[in-house]
Simulated assay, not measured.
Amino acid sequence: MVQDINKLTDNVNDIKSLFRTLNDTLESIEKRLSRLEKMDSIEHRVEVNQIDLSDIKESLQRIEETNNRDIQHINRRLDSHLVKIAKLEENMIIFKCK
Rank of each mutant, 00 (worst) to 15 (best):
V2D: 11
I94S: 05
R76W: 03
K7E: 15
C97A: 13
R62M: 09
V83D: 13
D4G: 10
I63K: 10
S41V: 00
Q50G: 02
N49W: 03
R35K: 14
L78H: 08
S28E: 11
N75W: 02
T66Q: 14
M92R: 08
N75M: 13
F95S: 12
Q72T: 11
Q61C: 01
S54D: 13
V46F: 00
E90V: 05
L33K: 15
L82E: 11
T9L: 12
I5N: 11
I51A: 08
L88Q: 03
S17W: 01
K96D: 10
S41N: 09
R69K: 12
E58S: 06
L26I: 11
V83A: 14
L60M: 04
I94V: 07
R20V: 04
E30H: 08
R69M: 02
E27H: 11
D70G: 02
N6G: 06
D40M: 13
L88V: 05
L8T: 03
V2H: 09
D14Y: 05
N75H: 07
I63F: 07
M92V: 06
Q72R: 12
I42T: 12
I56L: 12
I42W: 04
M39L: 10
E37T: 06
E58A: 10
K84E: 15
K84T: 11
Q50E: 09
K31S: 14
N91S: 14
